[in-house]
Computed example of a mutant assay.
Amino acid sequence: MITMDDIIREGHPTLREVAKEVSLPPTEEDKKILNSLLDYVKNSQDPDTSKKYGLRPGIGLAAPQINVSKRMLAVHVKDNKGKLYSYALFNPKIISHSVETAYLTSGEGCLSVDRAVPGYVPRFSRITVKGWNVDGEEIKIRLRGIASIAFQHEIDHLNGIMFYDHIDQENPLQPIEGAVPIDR
């Protein structure tokens, strides 16, 4: 089981690397890692489990955050209508996206960042992601809102990008012109 001690923090060189593609079909070891990413996110959202193991709640986790520089991520989040998006993917790619952008009004946080970083992070409003599930089956998912933002945040980790790299350093809290504000 992944704990907070397994999650590397900003400044660690792995977080700035471009992660390697996972060979498909996946090995048993890669399947185990992918499943453990999803387990962490689910466990971190359960009040009893997160308290028992000292887990910081999160909605997504990428393999580089546990010092595994491979293209794997997990997202477990409900949208504002209560629809659950729970995915663990190998080699996820954004294959299309909207022109329209969006941002979280509360800003973004990260399990690898132990400080609050104020600022709005511009993201695509809608994306389509292609990846492979734990069984090596290709899947395509259309995402919007918080699920779209979570996937973009985690895919950034696979490319060595931190969420705060996107924040306007001059005016971090200036609403992003033409973008849809999303309350969370």
Rank of each mutant, 00 (worst) to 15 (best):
P25N: 13
S36R: 12
P26R: 10
D46H: 01
D48L: 08
L38P: 02
E29R: 12
K31V: 11
S50V: 02
L34Q: 08
K20V: 08
T49H: 03
L24N: 09
P47H: 06
R56D: 08
P25H: 08
K42I: 15
L34V: 06
L34D: 06
N43H: 12
S36M: 13
Y40A: 10
T27A: 13
S36H: 04
D39E: 15
L34C: 06
V41A: 11
R56A: 09
L24M: 08
P25A: 07
E28G: 05
Y40E: 04
T49K: 15
P26F: 05
A19R: 12
K52T: 14
R56Y: 05
D48M: 06
L55D: 12
K52P: 05
Q45F: 03
T27H: 07
A19D: 03
T27W: 03
P47L: 01
T49F: 01
T49D: 00
E29K: 15
P26N: 03
P26M: 11
D48I: 14
E28F: 03
L24E: 07
L34G: 04
L34W: 02
N43Y: 05
V22E: 02
K20Y: 03
S23R: 10
L24Y: 02
A19W: 02
K20W: 02
A19Y: 03
Y53G: 00
V41R: 06
T49M: 15
L38E: 09
N43K: 14
Q45A: 04
N35H: 09
V22S: 09
G54N: 07
T49C: 07
N43E: 13
K32M: 06
Y53M: 11
T27M: 04
L37F: 03
E29Q: 07
P47V: 06
L37A: 00
T27R: 08
K20Q: 14
T27E: 09
I33H: 01
L37T: 11
K51W: 01
E29T: 13
D48P: 00
S23E: 13
V22Q: 08
Y53V: 04
L34F: 11
L34H: 11
S23I: 10
Q45G: 10
D39R: 14
S23N: 05
K51F: 02
D39V: 09
V41W: 09
V22K: 04
N35M: 11
E21G: 01
K20R: 14
D48A: 14
P47D: 03
K31R: 15
E28N: 13
P47T: 04
K20F: 08
K31G: 05
N35E: 15
V22N: 02
V41D: 01
E21R: 14
L24I: 11
